[in-house]
């Protein structure tokens, strides 16, 4: 299994090895109060690719996202974003790197004292945008993308769980990040709302070419992202091959964490055909 982990299989794009992966972890370990959370984790996410991170609760999935954002520092190993190691960087030095990334937290993590408009505009203001017209134009544009333009003046408490996640997606993409991280974006949502979120994730990935890392324990969501792609013409998900996008499933990889270790790394075909009992439990 170890031989499958990231560094042994550089991502391919049109048959050409990716020189600089969007995200790469090299032998990352992290412990909290002497309890290991991640142990020697390595993988890479190529530009424009999708990585689905699976694992049971407490397997270190969310921690891994925080490491990629530089919200946590590993005890050992390297975390590279667009080829730059962020482990030795100070908080202020991380800000330019974080601009390349957007994150959707599990519960949305919207600022509850700010309206939807102010939540989405937050990053633009932090980046120094002063032109209110420009801000409003961009905020409306991304809220239209998630089909929530009508919620502009609402407070987060007035939104449903699914709407909060969609606003969170809008907030994350407002400054056009090239990497999107999703922490259990469909957890606790009904199947219809969960599908809406999956469509948005695929839309961002397929229309804007955003590198995508999705943490989930819902395998169905993972296979939706692996088997379908967003068709702008039909404004819906279509089977990858039907849209002429052959090979889409090969750019969606799966990584399974178990007790802080990488238990599996590979393609959809590899995970579905793998006889490993632990993986079979996931696929059941």
């Amino acid at each position: 299994m170890d031989s499958l982990i990231g560094e042994s299989k550089p991502a391919l794009r049109d048959g050409v090895p990716e020189i600089t992966p969007a995200v790469e972890l090299r032998r990352v370990s992290l412990s909290f109060e002497e309890k290991p959370v991640l142990d020697d984790v390595s993988f890479r996410l190529g530009a424009g690719e999708t990585l689905v991170l699976l694992g049971v609760t407490g397997s270190g999935k969310s921690v891994l996202l925080k490491l990629i954002l530089g919200l946590l520092k590993p005890d050992s190993g390297q975390v590279l974003v667009d080829g730059q190691d962020l482990t030795p960087l100070a908080e202020t030095e991380l800000f330019p790197l974080r601009r390349k990334m957007g994150i959707v937290f599990q519960e949305g993590a919207l600022f509850d004292s700010l309206s939807v408009y102010e939540n989405v505009a937050y990053r633009l203001r932090e980046e120094g945008e002063k032109d209110e017209e420009q801000i409003e134009h961009r905020v409306r544009e991304v809220l239209r993308f998630v089909e929530l333009e009508h919620t502009l003046d609402k407070m987060p408490a007035e939104l449903s769980g699914g709407m909060r996640r969609r606003v969170s997606i809008a907030r994350a993409i407002v400054s056009d990040p090239s990497i999107m991280l999703y922490d259990s974006p469909t957890a606790g949502l009904d199947p219809v709302t969960a599908h809406t979120i999956n469509v948005l994730i695929a839309k961002l990935r397929d229309v804007q070419g955003v590198s995508t890392l999705v943490v989930t324990h819902r395998l169905a969501d993972a296979f939706v992202l692996a088997n379908f792609m967003y068709s702008p013409e039909k404004m819906a998900l279509v089977p990858a091959a039907a849209d002429g996008a052959t090979g889409r499933s090969f750019t969606t990889r799966f990584l399974v964490l178990r007790d802080g270790l990488v238990h599996f790394w590979g393609s959809k075909e590899e995970i579905t055909s793998n006889p490993d009992p632990y993986l079979r439990k996931f696929l059941a």
Partner: peptide, 17 residues
Amino acid sequence: SMLVSEQIDAMRALGTD
């Protein structure tokens, strides 16, 4: 409350100290 609801992490992720 902001910390436990990950709003502080969101703030840092959005480029704010």
